[in-house]
Design a protein around this nucleic acid. Structure first.
Lengths: 269, 269
DNA sequence: TTTATCGGTTCGTATTTTGAACCGTTGTTT
DNA sequence: AAACAACGGTTCAAAATACGAACCGATAAA
């Protein structure tokens, strides 16, 4: 592991719920040596990726990130291109909706929207979505590059009693998702949360990300599932078009098939 | 220079006008070895800071930046807290207005607004503002930590015929800014652009950043200067309050003084 | 066929990174 | 007030890693 990777990994410890971190605390969190961590923080500070509160000595994320993010979104306007569809999806289903993107072999959150609050909410505390345990991640496995499967297998951490734990089971679930056109995760990442996803594709027909609905499991009836799936299809078409992408006809066919022959996700898992 | 610093410096080559860069081109831009640069890019890609266009092999900024920027803005809501005042300033003066923040010893752009287009514009292509040649940078020298001066002196690159080139001159300009309460830069960074700034302070009374108006030099009359200064004071008060800061009374006194005894910036330089 | 450029890889050298121990300060406990 | 603990930050010899010249295969122009 390069020193660059180790240094950048420190940034992931900052979150809305833990926005400021001291040197010693960060060492404990990252299980790193203090001298090393200090030097890493210096490098990040030099680059403007973090800054230090002069009075408390705590570190927090820095202003250079805003600038780079602005360039990214100006170059690849995914977020702004997904927000309208996301709001519509969330409002129509009454549940939280979010969009994720696949970059390399990692699934990142892009935007989320909660119907209750009726406002675009900050990105969740989740930094990256595990491939094997979330609806978005499973979508990536089913519709993204085949090389992802081995990577997912090598990181099969268990989050709940329902997290899939064997490569064989995972293969079965992925096959089912590739067949139906919808990713699903039944309490496999967070207890009592059930997720359903639809894939999004880019201009070259490659898998780009997923749009998902995360639903409190007790509210998840077959009727709601049917509504969610219909709205997910609309959202996926909308976002894919907005990103300049094209939906493979096989996906459209899968959706038509699974929407006309509904069967709940309860059977699976 | 650590490998981390070298790696992060690569990100600065991405901009709205050059959003995608190939390996060889980046090596030329950064004057680095190909193998080294490739490894650095790998590390950045692993962290999601860049991603590679699968078909063209060009690299571009990655989605992890959006997420970190979101956490930063959620933690330190500077951008959202400055936008209203910025729009008002730009509309009232008819010129481009922007806000910068000081982090460590670097001045970063935060947001900008152009009156002509009547919309919040993307951050300028400028990555960081030189301390000695911009109104924002000079504000930081005049009102920020004293240690900045030596750093500025060690980086006195010349951008135009008007760029200040000697520490003695710089010291004089900084003293004048500290006295008047307004930063100014008369065609010292970009030809034909004249900048005026007012400082912004944080909750502990420390210098936090500056709000500025960038004006085409030919349009810069004493009358416009007076209007700009008045509106800058209002914007600085507004943004400082929005950031939870307090303006030192000495600054308010300077403003009162220099607004009641107007003298154009032409005399200086 | 030759030549140039591209993205990416190899491997021995040597520079950089590393972490145990240490320092001075601050705030709490005895 | 003495002892203690935790904090941010620093030192230096030992060791891991970063480095870059040379190389590879592919692609595209001459």
């Amino acid at each position: 592991m390069s020193s660059v990777t180790k240094t950048l990994a420190l940034l992931a410890y900052f979150s809305p719920s833990r926005p400021e971190i001291g040197l010693s605390q960060l060492c404990r969190l990252a299980k790193r040596d203090k001298a090393t961590t200090y030097r890493h923080l210096q490098a990040l500070e030099d680059a403007g990726f973090i800054e230090q509160n002069a009075t408390t000595k705590l570190y927090r994320l820095g202003p250079a990130l805003l600038q780079l993010a602005q360039v990214r979104e100006l170059t690849v306007p995914q977020k702004v291109g997904a927000e309208a569809a996301l709001a519509a999806l969330s409002d129509a289903t009454g549940e939280t909706a979010h969009v994720t993107v696949l970059s390399g072999s990692t699934v990142y959150p892009l935007a989320s929207h909660e119907s209750q609050l009726h406002g675009t909410r900050a990105i969740m505390d989740v930094q990256t979505f595990p491939l094997h345990a979330t609806a978005s991640g499973l979508c990536a496995l089913a519709f993204g590059p085949d090389t992802l499967f081995d990577i997912a297998v090598s990181k099969m951490e268990s989050y709940t009693a329902n997290t899939v734990t064997t490569p064989v089971e995972l293969r079965k679930i992925v096959a089912r998702i590739a067949d139906t056109g919808f990713g699903y995760a039944n309490r496999s990442y967070e207890d009592e949360i059930q997720g359903v996803s639809a894939p999004i594709f880019d201009q070259s027909g490659q898998y780009a990300g997923a749009v998902s609905v995360a639903c409190v499991a007790t509210r998840f009836t077959p009727e709601l599932e049917q509504i969610i799936k219909q709205k997910l299809v609309a959202a996926s078409r909308d976002i894919t078009r907005s990103w300049g992408g094209v939906l493979p006809s096989s996906i459209e066919a899968s959706w038509t098939r699974s929407l006309s022959h509904p069967h709940t996700l309860e059977n699976a898992s």
